[in-house]
């Protein structure tokens, strides 16, 4: 999951630098002690993250025997097979549809709901907690509940839609090749739009009231207040939110694996699900690693683009 966290106060930042200097004056020994304290963390990072990551990258160049797990170097063989076939490109296209489609819906819905929940109305505090509820649900719960809601035999949605005459007979939302991707996007949007709401609402509450008062005195309409004050103030949080959601949706394995498993007939087979199927459905670990490598390259391009567009997030120190 992807919950947000604590904030960094400016005072704390400056204080940390000051204390660091204070200790630095006591000699270089403190620097050594500080670095030593980091050692277990660095070791754990290498063991469970950097090591496996490097191993995964290298594995893309190997063929892995199914039972013995013996590896044999095959050069670019895996990549040729992956890039030469249609499955990878198909999965990339579906991943982009899933990511961009979901992103647009999440952002529109998220910003709209944040603006709504920022207004004064009765029971606002309770409404806010309830609106972010789907985001707190375990993923397996969210998908199980939606499978039940959209169930072709007894699902409430099909019953309601047939009752009002929108559809003539129950629909298999996750089993129709034309509908499956759209259904999966809708479920994912329902689950994660509250993340956008939380991010935007937090920023909305910090826009200085005076800006609106001044605009109102000048006779600015509600629309122009939104375009000229609200939107520019939201700019940076919007960029970060789009970036994070893009990465997380691009790599979302759980939602699709639990709802459709990539089917029907590869209609929802995104790159993460393809990695899983190649590796653990077909026991082609080398091919799976090659797809993972290609995904990693795509992601790195995205990271570079983001850091190039904005100031680095990690530059808080």
């Amino acid at each position: 999951m992807d919950a947000g966290g604590g904030s960094t106060s400016v005072r704390g930042n400056r204080g940390a630098g000051r204390l660091a200097r204070f200790w630095a004056r006591r000699g270089n020994r403190t620097a050594v002690v500080g670095a030593l304290l980091l050692l277990p963390v660095v070791a754990a990072f290498i063991l469970v993250i950097a090591g496996p990551l490097a191993r995964g990258v290298i594995l893309g160049f190997y063929r892995v025997q199914q039972i013995t797990m013996n590896t044999r170097f095959v050069g670019l063989g895996n990549f040729e097979r992956v890039l030469g076939g249609t499955q990878f490109w198909n999965a990339l296209w579906i991943t982009l549809q899933y990511t961009v489609g979901g992103l647009v819906l999440q952002m529109v819905l998220g910003v709209g709901v944040a603006l709504l929940l920022n207004q004064h109305f009765h029971g606002r505090a309770l409404a806010r907690s309830l609106a972010i509820f789907p985001y707190l649900l375990p993923i397996v719960v969210a998908t199980t509940v939606w499978k039940w809601l959209l169930n072709p035999n007894y699902g409430i949605f099909n019953t309601m839609l047939t009752d009002v005459g929108l559809i003539s007979q129950p629909i298999g939302w996750f089993s129709e090749p034309d509908l499956a991707l759209g259904s999966v996007i809708l479920v994912s949007t329902w689950r994660v739009f509250p993340f956008v709401v939380i991010a935007i609402l937090g920023r909305l509450q910090n826009i200085p009231r005076q800006l609106y008062d001044a605009a109102a005195t000048d006779g600015a309409s509600a629309w122009s207040q939104f375009w000229d004050i609200t939107l520019p103030q939201l700019r940076s949080v919007l960029i970060i939110t789009v970036f994070l959601r893009f990465i997380w949706d691009f790599n979302d394995f759980n939602t699709i694996a639990l709802l459709t498993g990539g089917g029907p007939a590869e209609a929802t087979l995104t790159l993460p699900v393809l990695i899983y199927q190649l590796g653990f459905g077909q026991h082609q670990l080398g091919l799976a690693a090659a797809v993972a490598d290609l995904t990693l390259i795509l992601l790195s391009v995205l990271f570079v683009l983001y850091f190039w567009m904005t100031k680095p997030l990690g530059d808080q120190r």
């Binding site: 496996p52 191993r55 995964g56 790599n251 990695i275 990271f303």
Partner: peptide, 16 residues
């Protein structure tokens, strides 16, 4: 690494 997708770690973690 915090932004890093889990699914890319799946194959190497399996081997380890």
């Amino acid at each position: 690494t915090y932004l890093f997708p889990s699914v890319l770690m799946l194959v190497p973690l399996f081997l380890i």
